[in-house]
Design a binder for these strands. Sequence first.
DNA 1: ACGAAACGGAGAAGCAATCTCCGCATCTTT
DNA 2: AAAGATGCGGAGATTGCTTCTCCGTTTCGT
Lengths: 209, 209
Amino acid sequence: MTGIRRDSVRNRARLVEAAREVFAARGFEATLDDVARHAGLGTGTAYRHFPNKQALAAEVLTGATEQIAIDARAALEIDDPWLGLVDFFQRNAERQARDRGLYEALTGLGDDEAQARIWPGIITAVSELFDRAHAAGVLRPDAAAQDIPAIFAMLGPAFEMSRTIAPDLWRRYLTLMLDGLRATGRPDLPAPPPPVESLPLILRAGKRT
Amino acid sequence: MTGIRRDSVRNRARLVEAAREVFAARGFEATLDDVARHAGLGTGTAYRHFPNKQALAAEVLTGATEQIAIDARAALEIDDPWLGLVDFFQRNAERQARDRGLYEALTGLGDDEAQARIWPGIITAVSELFDRAHAAGVLRPDAAAQDIPAIFAMLGPAFEMSRTIAPDLWRRYLTLMLDGLRATGRPDLPAPPPPVESLPLILRAGKRT
DNA sequence: ACGAAACGGAGAAGCAATCTCCGCATCTTT
DNA sequence: AAAGATGCGGAGATTGCTTCTCCGTTTCGT
């Protein structure tokens, strides 16, 4: 009887690491072949360790996604309700700006179950941030927690620009939107926020069929 | 010698009309076959009248794109500098919300020459709107004309949501961003606006290679 | 040194879009 | 009304991917 081969274990780890880098840089459009090559391994090896791209992606994203809800809770520790909100958005935007795969997983382009699993937790956690800010009167009264996925979706193009133009450019546009969210005597927002049931649709919007 | 056949002329017109509808609804991902079928014609007919999809798209977009610069000039007729700016954004967003093909043509996903042809005119026209608003002190001082394409790019996801959730939803997020642009004692924007030379890159960002 | 396990990468298989081809239908002209 | 020219239709050839398999060769563990 033979034991577990050391090279096999090492190659699996290399694949995961390569996938992390490749998906972050190019999103899920990258092929498993791309990942394998980047890991210095053959295609066959990639397919022996993972049945398909989704499986590998799932492995890579676990943790990255949990982090989001953790961040939301951390933001609640910050005393100033406004700064807490800003902190949440900045932390998460920062990650997504660096990781295209993460952005795609959170908004529509990745796989569906992942989204369904992740967002409810985020919304719940962030709703508290919103409630607190509303109570303190620092957030415009007509802003709602349902606006969060929409805001992240809109940041997507800003992340892309950041990649090609200047790494920090997204901060400019996030600030613009956050300033729009502030409560300082401006007109009411037109149109109600999207209904909660349509959250999945918000995220799917833009997904090319 | 034979004259021009009437059915041929009519079919060409039908194709253009069908293309207008199909591209508006589904963007340029639609195939020429799709357009032909929607026109009630065969694929071959489509390819006889237009060498390829781009040619048809060009025909459909002429006019729609000129309209934008016209709108910008019209907005200058409005006395209130702020309202003029809002008017410009709203008119254009409205068109793009209804016409996915137009949005794609203006931002990165369409064909490149079209963009190069259109944007300079827009920027020039809108720069005046910005200058006027800056002079009146109604626009945050650190906002620049280069931010316009970026803002439109970010509205893209909002347009998609509007299509699937509520037709007016984009107004909510446009207002959010415009409110962020307003001059009412808020912190400076981080990161400078993208340099003018990088405008094409801004629009290309998000274009999948 | 031997057998089991894993590797590599060419290429099979599948898929989707673009575009061609030619027998058939429809027009215009006389 | 007949004839020739022109346009139509849509099946399928072509092209360009990506996904995934297969098996001769290499590397590992005992």
